[in-house]
Nucleic acid binder design. Structure first.
Lengths: 246, 246
DNA sequence: GTCATACATTGATCGAAATCAAAGGTGGAT
DNA sequence: ATCCACCTTTGATTTCGATCAATGTATGAC
């Protein structure tokens, strides 16, 4: 049971568990430190392009990014909103299946693919940790399919706001006295529309409708205040048990 | 490098790689054999219910199943079509997030959760193998989100037929002389509608439309013949490079 | 054979979201 | 401050898929 010194601890990427893992040794951790680098992207920058080579694996340290695909005729669908500590890329494949684009400034912790794959092979805990993360993302992707396939525009918007608030709850979302929640949308209306499978106009209209019905309060177009979280959840068609199992 | 005897090889479940794995030993494989059982479900049977306990992990050996969620008001969305060697359940969670229902008769290879989790912890190759499978399913789920969010009814249907033909291509799909493909739908029109995020009527109408346009041929309602696979792919909005990277 | 049942197709009408179009806001550059 | 570019909202109209309704078609029981 090695006690690790902070200087080699990695606390801001998916591999961070190794810093507190009882049965990993310092050599492995040092190896991990050697191969990782940090990188910061400007707002709007592409972190990956669908179909193009992706010879590294990254974990988001700060900021948000979208994962999306654009059809030839311009229709775009966002398939995931990436937030810390989500990962980009995967072991065993040298191509990205989707576009990944920064929303605002994004910092990632990055590993070269070969070195990363070697680490996954050599270090069982990394594979296990990645498996858990992947399965969680898989459940989330399937939950979102229900939203895309069967919900109305209003329900989609409510579901998104609720899920975003839940995701930010681990981090920075402000809890207001009286059960309210406030959050800042990392997306423009257009990006939101692409995520919900709607047009920008419908998205804006439904946002207005939720505001007029008192379910949300908009101080600015991207500053959302949810006075009654339960009420908004109900609008998203939730059965009152506090959301998806994920 | 142990050469394994057939009697302890498992060739019909996700763990089958162990039978040919050079660096695993016979003891581990024997342990794996001890904890697994086979189970067959009748058509329509539930293999899991959303929100209910699921104290085992299974891999489909034969047959098909759907993974779906039903909202309180009856709207249902299928989030995945399970075929061999897809898995049901996951390490680290004792609840199912979705309903899993057999389409026709289904046989699974089943492990009790505790024993399976122990195996995952103890056997690095199992974790790696599961990781690869999960990441493939994740990409597939995200690809499907593009279909659900942005495609028309006709495109959805074409995309589904194309993807089903591709999945069955590893197995049983008949390749006809002249580049055609024939396949048997494992789903009723209603189940198909639930998968595509459409109603049964729209699904049926689009099926008819594809038939009238010569893109498919229906000998029976569930016997589909695709005379020109490329033409149907194009209808699904594919850019000609042979489908998703998955 | 007839009947019952579930599945599938087709038709008529309706409605939610898309599309087309224009006007309001907001923030940064000069 | 003024202008400009981009984002957002709102309005008018259209369209695709949903809904309501009926008819057609297989399969198995008896």
């Amino acid at each position: 049971m090695t006690r690790l010194t902070p200087i080699i601890a990695c606390n801001d990427c998916p591999i961070r568990f190794r810093a507190v893992c009882a049965d990993c040794d310092a050599e492995e951790l040092a190896m991990l430190e050697r191969v990782k680098t940090y990188r910061t992207y400007a707002a709007g920058a592409h972190l990956a392009l669908a179909g193009e080579g992706l010879d590294h694996f990254s974990s988001i340290v700060s900021g948000c990014a979208t994962m999306s695909r654009t059809l030839e005729d311009g229709r775009r669908q966002t398939v995931g909103l990436l937030m810390p500590p989500d990962f980009i890329g995967r072991p065993g494949r040298a191509q990205s299946a989707f576009d990944v684009q920064a929303l605002g400034e994004v910092t990632v912790c990055r590993f070269e693919r070969r070195a990363f794959e070697q680490m996954v092979r050599d270090t069982p805990h990394i594979a296990t940790r990645l498996l858990t993360m992947s399965l969680d993302e898989l459940d989330a992707a399937r939950d979102w399919a229900v939203v895309l396939g069967r919900m109305t525009a209003r329900e989609k918007l409510a579901a998104f706001l609720v899920s975003l608030a839940r995701r930010q709850a681990q981090g920075s979302t402000a809890r207001l006295p009286g059960g309210g929640v406030s959050l800042t949308l990392p997306l423009t209306r257009e990006e939101l529309a692409d995520h919900l499978g709607l047009t920008i106009e419908t998205t804006s209209r439904q946002m207005t409708a939720l505001r007029k019905d008192g379910l949300i309060d908009l101080r600015q177009s991207r500053e959302v205040l949810i006075p009654d979280f339960e009420a908004l959840s109900a609008e998203a068609g939730e059965d009152g048990d506090g959301g998806p199992i994920v």
